[in-house]
Design a protein around this nucleic acid. Structure first.
Ligand SMILES: NC(=O)c1ccc[n+]([C@@H]2O[C@H](COP(=O)([O-])OP(=O)(O)OC[C@H]3O[C@@H](n4cnc5c(N)ncnc54)[C@H](O)[C@@H]3O)[C@@H](O)[C@H]2O)c1
Ligand SMILES: NC(=O)c1ccc[n+]([C@@H]2O[C@H](COP(=O)([O-])OP(=O)(O)OC[C@H]3O[C@@H](n4cnc5c(N)ncnc54)[C@H](O)[C@@H]3O)[C@@H](O)[C@H]2O)c1
Lengths: 209, 209
DNA sequence: TTTATATTGTGAACAAAATATCAACACGAT
DNA sequence: ATCGTGTTGATATTTTGTTCACAATATAAA
């Protein structure tokens, strides 16, 4: 098993750990108990060296003869990524994208679940949408504080982004996954991940060109 | 205006260029004709140096007194990112996510439009879905060749991913934006961008923890 | 004119990430 | 016992991306 929990893992390594784990779940399902760096690398489209470096960083050691013990590795990655009691997150903006994400997640992960959604459209609030309760945006502070939520997925319309992000910060949210195309600014102690489909597509367009 | 088109721009720079442009469109709409690096930086949450470096790389020069000419900059970024005749792309897998993306895009960009969708669910094929025609996946090669499509957004179910990606490659697709949680392998001459929501969320969970 | 201030453009230093290299080890074959 | 193969773990090197520091320039004010 692993030795000690390092202070700060490189961002890219954390991303890959999440993906290693997903792939390893499949391997377990297929009855695989041990795995070599080159096997894992192939499944992820990486080099074996990269895999070993990542595992080295989390302090996990394999054996030269059998490689890595899949179950132990999954457990260790869980210890690094997951919170002990699991993370409950909220979706803010229950439009097309918000609903797609919510439907996708429902009952998928054990340690990461969508607890509720928020919107300002009265057609959507105070009822179950895509399997989870959807409340009015004005209730967000109360809810977040009561339920101890710290992560929000932001999928409101672009015009509302700044306003709503302010509300998230006021409510005490500590991690925002921003899918609106509007760049956000957050205080130092809040973590922000941004992703924009159009940017990805335009990058592809540039590369293909 | 710009001097000459450099051979290969850093990937991150290309991503930022796409975002500069979106923000600059807003500035134009607000009547702004010139902009300083620090203004653009603030809107994007970057340092002014980073902005200037990016613009340097694309060979665009501003003036010390007026900064950059917004319109010219937008034009130059367009020359770099856009194809002359525009790119028509396809969405493969018309589920929740595919539909969200399609609805979002409809009529949004001039140079980047979703031409058609493909699925294997007969409930969805041979009709208009979310504003665009949806065909059966078996027709994809014919369509792609006839219409000269080179970019595909992949949003099929995880189990179908490998099969469908093979079909995309056979059809001659040169750029794939893969939103399934299954890592893909593609030949050298095909460009691949992958993004996974769960990974982003787990990264956030790690950071917040 | 001279000075102060604000800006761009860029070489150089720095940091992060990916890749290459290799010693040490385990184990089966001989 | 010993060799050959395939593996890990660690260090070194290369590549990619960001930031620093400052020269050059423009403008406005004194
Ligand atoms: N759907 C996509 O593929 C896609 C792609 C790129 C970017 N985006 C961005 O993601 C965001 C959501 O996209 P979408 O397609 O789901 O849009 P959408 O219009 O379907 O959904 C937006 C939702 O936000 C809600 N909303 C608006 N103002 C609000 C407020 N003040 N408080 C709470 N809720 C509010 C609306 O009621 C609506 O339900 C947008 O910012 C869009 O630019 C979406
Ligand atoms: N929705 C999300 O937020 C989300 C998040 C992360 C990952 N993903 C991934 O994105 C993909 C799509 O997600 P979704 O929520 O839209 O799922 P979905 O089930 O709603 O849609 C999948 C679509 O793919 C089609 N399909 C299945 N096999 C096909 C085949 N062989 N050829 C053509 N079409 C086929 C189905 O008919 C369906 O329309 C999945 O791989 C999922 O894991 C989605």
């Amino acid at each position: 098993m692993g030795k000690n929990k390092p202070q700060a893992l490189p961002g890219k390594t954390v991303e890959r750990l999440s993906q290693y784990r997903r792939i390893l779940y499949n391997s377990i399902r297929e009855g695989k108990t041990n795995i070599y760096s080159h096997e894992l690398a192939k499944m992820m489209n990486l080099t074996p060296v990269q895999v070993r470096r990542d595992l080295m960083l989390i302090g996990y050691s394999g054996s030269q003869s059998k490689g890595y013990v899949v179950k132990d590795l999954v457990t260790l990655i869980g210890k690094i990524i997951d919170s002990d009691k699991g993370q409950r997150i909220i979706v803010v903006g229950m439009g097309n994208l918000g609903r797609a994400i919510t439907s996708y997640f429902s009952g998928k992960r054990e340690k990461l679940s969508i607890a509720a959604a928020f919107d300002n459209d009265l057609q959507k609030t105070d009822r179950i949408v895509a399997g989870i309760p959807c409340y009015h945006i004005n209730q967000i502070k109360e809810y977040v504080e009561k339920e101890g939520i710290s992560i929000a997925v932001l999928t409101v319309s672009p015009e509302a982004t700044h306003d709503v992000s302010k509300k998230l910060l006021e409510a005490g949210i500590k991690g925002i996954l921003n899918y609106t195309s509007v760049p956000l600014t957050v205080p130092e102690d809040v973590h922000l991940e941004e992703y924009d489909i159009v940017t990805s597509l335009e990058k592809l367009a540039y590369l293909v060109k």
